[in-house]
């Protein structure tokens, strides 16, 4: 049974790449892409909407960045941590970002780009 996954990232090239990697992994359906966190938030904030089982979230995005999106979504969905696995996926290697991520119980992991097929597989395995 394939799992649902969503990618929020403004980098269009990355979206293409991650799409290939996720399909290679074989654990997930074709991912849901958002290049803009505002749009994603608008889709996810309603409690009636079922969230994807995994969300890969970029930090550096125009308009609304990953942290703002996370804060807003937590506000909308208090039980967020049990609803989905959120992974921060960023090209940042700043330690401050990694530390910040660890303060959120809703964040399941902090990953630096590039992401490999095996990492995606681990996410899939973890869901089982």
């Amino acid at each position: 049974m394939k799992k649902s996954i969503c990618v929020i990232d403004d980098d269009m090239i990355y979206q293409l790449i991650i799409g290939k990697i996720i399909s290679r992994s074989g654990y997930f359906h074709k991912p849901l892409f958002y290049k803009n966190a505002t749009k994603a938030l608008a889709d996810f904030k309603s409690l009636e909407t079922e969230l994807p089982q995994v969300i890969l979230l970029d930090i550096n995005m125009p308009q609304m960045d990953g942290w703002q999106f996370l804060e807003a979504l937590i506000k909308e969905r208090p039980n967020l941590d049990s609803e989905t696995d959120i992974y921060i996926v960023t090209s940042s290697i700043a330690h401050s970002d990694r530390l910040k991520a660890s303060t959120y119980k809703q964040v399941s992991g902090f990953l630096s780009k590039p992401i490999t097929v095996s990492k995606i597989k681990e996410m899939g395995v973890r869901l089982k």
Binding site: R24, N60, S91, I93, S112, K113, I115, T116
Partner: peptide
């Protein structure tokens, strides 16, 4: 420097990912 590292890294990581995909 943050910007530089971030922006350049995003490209390099993309290149890395593409190359991995290419080889396989």
């Amino acid at each position: 420097s943050y910007i530089v590292s971030h922006n350049l890294r995003s490209h390099s990581s993309n290149i890395e990912a593409i190359l991995t995909l290419y080889h396989s």
